[in-house]
Computed example of a mutant assay.
Amino acid sequence: MSQLTDGFGRSFPYLRLSLTEACNFRCSYCLPDGYQADGRPRFLAVDEIARLIRAFAMLGMHKIRLTGGEPSLRKDLDQIIATVAQVPGVRKVAITTNGCLLPRRLPGWHRAGLTALNVSMDSLRRERFHAITGHDRLPEVLEGIALAQALGLQSVKLNAVLLRGLNDDELPQWMAFLRDRPVSVRFIELMRTGDNRDYFERHHLCADVIVGQLLAAGWSERRRAADAGPAREFSHPDHRGSIGIIAPYSKDFCKGCNRLRVTARGDLRLCLFGDFGIALRPLLQSDEDQGALLARITTQLGLKAAGHGLHFGQTGLTPHLASIGG
C-alpha cells in the first residue's frame, strides 16, 4: 500500500529519476544549441541513488523510470539499473532514451534488470528526424527498437512530440508502422518551457487534431485503468500496436497524476512545471538519515498543487525538458 498520497487523494507509485542533464542531441524544441555544462555539482552517484530508491520503495513506490537529459551518457548506467532493480518492492525499471546507443548498450541494460523502454522518435522520415534532432541517427534508433522486441522487454513505447508544420502529417505512416509491431507510439503535445516561447507559439498543435484523425480512421479509445498514466490509449483491430495521446493542456490532465520526479542533483519536484524543488541530497549521504529522508518526502506531498499553470504561461523552474527529463 502506497504511503505517498497528496491532499487531492492522488497516490504516487511512479518515480521519474533524472540521471543527468546532459544530452548528445540538439532537438529543436529542447536544446537547439546543444547541452552547455554549468560547472555546478556533479549528478547523483550510485550510492545516493540506492538510498533514494530504497526510501521511495519503502513508501510504496514500485515503478522507476530513469531519464535525463540522455541517461545513456552515464557510463555507470548498467550499475545504476542493477542497483535499482534489486531494491525490494521495485517491480518495473524503465528508461527513456533518444535511442542512438541502443544497439550497443541495450543488451547490458536488459541483463542488469531493465524491463521497459521508451524511445524518443519524433519522425519516421530520416531527413525530418535529422532536422528535428540535429543528428542523422534514425537507422540506429530503429535497429535498437527491433532489438528491444527481440529481447522481450515487457514494454516498448515510442514518444513523438507533435510539431505543427514539422511532423504533424505523419499519422498515416505511423499507422502503417504499427500494423505489425506490438509497440505503443505516444504523441505528446509540445509544452511551453522557460526557453522555448517563440518556438512553442510557432509549432504547438492541439492533440485533439490527432484524436479526430484517429477516430475517423477507425481507431477506438481504450477504457482507462485505475492506475493509468497521462496517456489516452487508442487501438485498432487491424494493428498490433497502439497509439497514445499525452495532452497536458487538456481539461483535467492533472487529475490522474501518479508520478513524482527527482532531478539529477537530488531535488524532489512535485510537478514537472512546479516553481520549487525540495533538496533530498543532504539526506542521501548516509543510511542513518533514512528516517529523516522518509519524513521529508512524505511531508512535502502536502504542498503538491492540484494542477500546473501551463495555461497561464507558468513554466515554473523548467528551462527546458532536458533539465528534468520530461
Rank of each mutant, 00 (worst) to 15 (best):
S2K: 05
S2H: 02
F12P: 00
Y14S: 02
N24E: 10
N24S: 07
S28M: 11
S28Q: 09
Y35V: 03
A37G: 07
R40M: 13
R40E: 05
R42F: 01
A45S: 14
D47W: 06
E48L: 06
A57H: 11
T67N: 09
G69R: 01
P71H: 08
D76F: 06
Q79F: 02
V87E: 12
I95N: 00
T96C: 06
N98D: 14
G99A: 08
G99D: 13
L101N: 12
L106W: 04
H110W: 14
A112E: 15
A112T: 14
L117C: 13
M121I: 14
D122P: 14
S123Q: 03
L124I: 13
E127D: 15
E127V: 14
R128W: 12
A131R: 15
I132N: 07
T133L: 13
H135F: 11
R137N: 12
V141H: 09
L147A: 11
A148T: 01
A148M: 06
D169C: 02
M175S: 05
R181H: 04
R181F: 07
T193G: 00
N196F: 01
R197V: 06
H203G: 09
C206F: 02
A207T: 09
V211D: 08
L215R: 12
S220R: 09
S220L: 09
R223G: 12
A225S: 13
A226K: 10
F234N: 10
A247F: 00
A247G: 05
Y249S: 01
G277M: 10
P282Y: 00
Q285Y: 05
Q285F: 01
D289Y: 09
A292H: 08
Q300S: 15
K304M: 04
G307R: 03
G316R: 05
P319I: 04
P319N: 04
L321G: 00
I324R: 00
G326L: 00
